[in-house]
């Protein structure tokens, strides 16, 4: 699972949880996989992301070195930043571990790179 996906997910599906974001990451196996660098895609993506959550995720994974805490204003023309974003968002892969709800601590396991966001019957909220 990539930090890009982590950026999109919340635990607000749990009954009673209001601010299940960002999910904490406890990873036991992380890999870096080469993905073709595509600055246009990254540039399109960045305005849709919550960069502080990207940074938090990077800290959880011990990959925060060189990742700024906030997004660069000139991100579109800042090649170094785009490359950093490309690496942290698309190349870092969480293979095994857990995502954790920041409010309740409920764990969502990541197995073989695929997160499992299913809840048990007594946990689901209506939406």
């Amino acid at each position: 699972m990539k930090l890009l996906t982590h950026n999109m997910l919340t635990s607000n599906i749990i009954k009673g949880v209001k601010n299940g974001y960002p999910l904490k990451i406890a990873a036991t196996k992380v890999e870096e996989r080469e993905v073709d660098y595509n600055p246009e895609f990254i540039t399109r993506l960045l305005p849709k992301l919550d960069w502080s959550a990207v940074h938090k995720g990077a800290v959880d994974l011990n990959k925060a070195e060189g990742v700024p805490e906030s997004m660069m204003d000139d991100y579109e023309s800042n090649e170094d930043f785009l490359k950093t974003a490309h690496n942290i968002l698309l190349q870092v892969e969480i293979i095994e571990g857990n995502l954790e709800c920041p409010e309740t601590g409920r764990k969502f396991p990541i197995t073989n790179g695929i997160p499992n966001m299913l809840l048990n019957e007594d946990e689901v909220s209506e939406k």
Binding site: M1, T5, M8, L9, N38, L90, I114, N116, L118
Partner: peptide, 24 residues
């Protein structure tokens, strides 16, 4: 086409609160 793979998630698509509000 593996560079175009982002992720797949085991999830119940009837629960849209799983996604942070944003027109991704």
């Amino acid at each position: 086409l593996e560079s175009h793979y982002i992720d797949v998630i085991v999830a119940d698509s009837s629960k849209q609160n799983m996604w942070r509000d944003q027109s991704y």
